[in-house]
Design a protein around this nucleic acid. Structure first.
Lengths: 143, 143
DNA sequence: GTAACTTGCAACAATTATTGTAACAGGATT
DNA sequence: AATCCTGTTACAATAATTGTTGCAAGTTAC
């Protein structure tokens, strides 16, 4: 398959909205920064709005963060965009008549849940504000 | 894309080799348990052999664990099969002339590395032996 | 109030990483 | 010698992604 960039692009959108809040915030302006197309941006924005991380107005290019960047975690963005998507994937087609095939799905489910939880705990510890600060710092260091 | 089952199938193979060590261990017998094809099994086994987690002999159906199951972690299997594959993916095509597009890749790289590390630490804490024991326990509970 | 822009949404094509299939050289076993 | 196996390769099929296009409906400015 193609690897998903949704999380990266979602963070990109939120950071863009915050940093360029007084400039053009149309989906095509944001798309130009992501080097993607406006439709993809609008698709992602719709999910972010649904999750309360972003507000928007139909017809007007006026998106804004749904709450302060310090109160948005990477986990929030992840769950908004890939919420039903686990990091590791069970093989759901194994032979139930075999000791291994008949039980490994349950075993791995438990194990993968632990890994997922560890990853999500780390994501929860990272805030959008932290990422934005890092971006601005890197930009400042260029000059 | 299609989601990768390599890790699940790799664990499946190793558990199968350990549990059925006195039975038929040909790639087609294992493939029947995974409900996959022998070629895929051989491909994965080749990578496991390369990583030292499995031994095998060309021409003879006699694979065996490369070291005791207690000394093989989920992380070992993960690195053997998806070692160059991160869990989260940067969007590598962003506009370098934008403050966000020009810096977010580096920022997210650092952040994703933290998440990866948290997940891998959890994987390191899970042993193949633990998974095998769990499989056998679930099987015993059926009767 | 109309023209020019926007969002929100949906359908379909293109892309890309995966797994499936088939073939074959060479080793092992009987 | 016959049969089965592994290891490897090439190519097809599958599946999830992003790209593209189109359009109804909201917004803004003149």
């Amino acid at each position: 398959m193609k690897y998903s960039h949704k999380l990266s692009d979602g963070v990109h959108i939120l950071a863009y909205v915050d940093i360029y809040q007084d400039a053009d915030l149309s989906s095509s302006a944001i798309a130009a920064s992501i080097e993607a197309n406006p439709s993809l941006v609008r698709r992602l924005m719709a999910q972010l709005v649904k999750a309360g991380l972003l507000t928007s107005q139909p017809g007007a290019a006026a998106p804004a963060l749904g709450r302060p960047a310090a109160e948005i975690s990477l986990l929030d963005v992840y769950q908004a965009l890939e919420g039903n998507q686990e990091l590791l994937h069970i093989d759901e087609k194994t032979n139930p008549q075999c000791i291994v095939g008949g039980n490994i799905q349950a075993s791995l489910n438990a194990v993968y849940a632990q890994v997922q939880q560890a990853a999500e705990a780390q994501m929860a510890a990272i805030s959008l504000q932290g990422i934005i600060s890092d971006i601005l710092q890197r930009e400042a260091a260029k000059h």
